[in-house]
Design a protein around this nucleic acid. Sequence first.
DNA 1: TAGTTTTAAGTTTTT
DNA 2: CTTAAAACTA
Length: 780
Amino acid sequence: MSSESPPSIPPYLETLNPEQREAVLHWGRPLLILAGAGSGKTRVITTKIAYLIREKGLDPRSILAVTFTNKAAREMADRARLIDDRAGAAVMRTFHSFGAWFLRRYGSRAGINPGFVIYDDDDMVSLLSTLMEDAPRAEIKETARCISRAKDYLLSPGDPGLDRIDYRKSFRRIYRRYEERLAQIGNVDFGDLIGKPAELLRTDGELAERIRRRFKAILVDEYQDSNIAQFELLKELWGGGAYLCVVGDDDQSIYRFRGAEVRNILEFPSRFDGADIIRLERNYRSVAPILAAASSVVDHNRGRLGKTLRAERGTGKLPVLAFLPDQDEEAAFCADLIENSVTSEKNRALYSDWAILYRTNAQSLGFETELLRRRIPYRVVGSLKFYEREEVKDALALLSFLVNPRDEVAFRRVVNKPARGVGAVTADRIVLEAGSPPEPRPETDRDLFDEAPASSGPGPGDLAAAARRLLPGLSPKAASGLRDFLGAVEQGRTFLGMEETAKGGGKRKLPKTGGELRAGEGLSVCLVHLVDAAGIAAYHLARDDIAGNQRIGNLQELANAASMYPSSEEGLLEFLEHIELDRTMEEDTGDGDSVTLITLHNTKGLEFRRVIMTGNEQGLFPREEKRDDDLEEERRLFYVGATRAMDELYLTSCAMRRVFGSVKAAEPSLFLREADPAAFRVVGNAPPGFASSRYGGKGTGPHRSRRSGAPPQAPPAVSSDGRWRLGNRVFHDDYGYGAVVEIRESDDGPVVRVHFETGREVHFLSPVQGAKFLKVEDDG
DNA sequence: TAGTTTTAAGTTTTT
DNA sequence: CTTAAAACTA
């Protein structure tokens, strides 16, 4: 369905290229936009939202735009509003946040408590540990992972397809009990945020019809990262009537490990019969050599839709491939590059032009240390452990217990913190006493655009009520401790207007506490009081006065964040939901000119003028023994990382790497060998197979390139067993690459002296090579 | 039951 | 090496 070209093109469409414009104007059948890296897809989506409102006359509230990260959702909303202010009323959310929104409004139809709290992975593990009492931690974590995966594939405990996830008989039993417990508690996990809405729409025809009346256009960004459950949810929302437009790039699918199905995008045309496809293949971000290097690697993947990116920016600097001795040199190499660039006379760079990319969060530490030492400003994106800190989780557990007194996980976490004489045995009794699940609440019908969630209330299963009933039977110490805890909780609930007061309801002033934390506006008053009254702040201060003060600081930061929310039950729910779904802290200041440290996964959707991809070593990237589909995913990750770079790209590979304290030798990444050799300029001590532009260096033996065409050296000596000759390249698991520099005969056989690239020399007895010691290259 | 010491495990990647 | 979990003692 192409548009009847209007006589005059609105100005906001003028700057689009023909394919982009076609994608924006498209209407009718489902549309798949295959958007290569840097092809301006966000621009297309945001423009399309504005177009639907302006030219198609859609009510903004009938447009649903889904992304995978909160940052992307925010950016989409900001940019769409810039084109047309009305776009702000469209529903622009992540899949999970949409699911939460949906469940709070309509979940009661399926007996879901609208005041649910979202359980993260840690909470899952906590709940599971009450179900798998004597199991080791690792097994519980593995079970939690399997349950998450099962939910990604929309598999219930009774589903025969569950064997694909976990074949253990016990798994089904535990999964079923986990679901029962979660339902009793009245909370949901991440998977439920997708699965429950999908299920609800599938079984509740009236609701489905109503939702389909509302959402006339559905747009999905980063579609290649969607999983089966998300596909089903999308299908239900679409219902055959809405306009559906998905945007993605199969080459950038990097979330298989959490259930993403590349097939969703590969098979989109067949799943949505008669879908149109538009390709955006003009790359406006990277210079041609960067694109060529990235493509030459991802070209090794099978099963792609295939596209050819054209570099609109034209030629530029060749990517640099640097071989370095170890990770300290790697950090120094990065710091040197950055320092030189910001002081250079011509073509001066800003710190913020630079990004250092790595595979695992653990790698950031070395870079942080070096940058700190050199006083280079940096910021670490993601890996925010703030919400994983003990004191922060304690405070959040208290708040969660306020909204949901059935929350066993939260209750167990804080009921005996600080020690109140209420141990595991007493906690078990209270949970048992609370017993039966509550009645499902009747659904209240509301207007199509009404977005207020139904309010929750206490009911059976209330742990606070159960604890109160058991008070008389407890030891004086336990009873008094429990009373303190219940008192703090009740004060909090009363303050938020959730508890009927004796004198006719309404909010009540909190008694003053001489606590360590300062209360600010709104919800922070409640949080601060609760943390003080429950003794959390004092507990952490008492344990350690150095770390304790740091912890008080963290609690203060949490309180500051809470002050943005209204002091009410709704405000509290909003606050908790925001924290569960978006753990990226607000950027402190946007004005800071600093280097970005970031994992490869986190870079998606971002761009930087200059990018350093570090740790290109076998075992680290690609990780371990990745094979087949998993290896292809790592390759796509390489592609994603490389295509973040606009002007300059650097790749580093170390000969040695410290892991768990001890050093291990490393081989260059497979991806470096797969890349077109002409795509890089190689610097440093290149291992065999890589043409180095610099020769010699540290006199580490012969250092010829395969492509140099130099005549082979005459072999001056060969070991008596014929295994070794001088100049042989060798590789040792612990020492890395080296060369045989001496051969002599001993009573036990030939002994070789090997000089390694790290400068170390080691003697080996020829027969006892073991698997750790291999000959890499035959001379001559 | 609470707090301490000893031992072992861990590094993917994230909503 | 660092951190979390099991084991142990008061």
